[in-house]
Amino acid sequence: MAGDDSSGRPGLALVERQDVENRDVEAGLDALDASPDLPAGPGLGKRFVRSVLPPIVFLALLVGVWELAYLAELKPSYVLPSPADVAQKFWETVQDGSAAEAIWTSLSRGAVGFAMSLVIGSLLGLAMWWSRWLRAAIGPIVSGLQSLPSVAWVPAAIIWFSLSNAAIYTVVLLGAVPSIANGLLSGLKQVPPLFDRVGRVLGLSALGRIRYVLLPAALPGYLGGLRQGWAFAWRSLMAAELITYSPNLGQGLGQLLNIGRELSQMSLVITSITLILAVGVAIELLVFAPLERRVLTRRGLTAR
């Protein structure tokens, strides 16, 4: 039996000879199996027509209808100002720096509140995953809090902390923490049990399995939770700012909106709403969408 050694195992010379041939077949298979280069994505012009143009056309239509309604004098102009009036007010707000100030105030509050929610929500989610008892005990409450409009906490927060930043952060936290905790929890629950077995077979410690297997595996669900958590934090912040108006608090977008209401200045109200919306969309487009796309693309969970 040429090539076999005494144990019935093929000799090294034999396997190496066999390997030369096998390598060629293998390389060919790899080349055939590799996903063919996809045609390049749609060009810049086509992408513009597909995703940038439609919202612009829609907005233009909206403004057109608005202008018509204004010209038809459906409502008195203090209720329904013309698009030009609002544009002018918008420009004023931007020019005198009050828009930048309000955006900065709200955004920094939002960032600090979100960062706190991130820490607390993540720890809470992890604890709920760790302890079945805790999950049973507070799971329904956490889920319930997710559907409770956080504006409902504003009166309580004001009574506890008076008109202060602490009151605002309390409302933001109550809005964002449940989403983040639940996002992490559902991400962890969706991790295939096989991954944990892999970690155990490789000999990772319990902490090593959490650090290198479980948490990265839970990342997509967690990111979904963070995204929703930010949306809730931003909404809660606006609700809180709208109600807690005080000279010794910085003037955020919500407060700007409230000034518009108190002065019955519809153009300022619409300007503020536009700014709030713009910040929300910008954070979504600049932070969360790219982050999520990157994570999902790396895992092959989404088309490029």
Binding site: L194, L204, L219, R298, G300
Partner: peptide, 28 residues
Amino acid sequence: RPALMFQEPALLPWLTASGNVELALRAR
């Protein structure tokens, strides 16, 4: 600790081919 291979490759999808092998080395 015997090495074990499953019917599924059970590779961790957020790591590269090399990263998956490196994780086993890290565990060691």
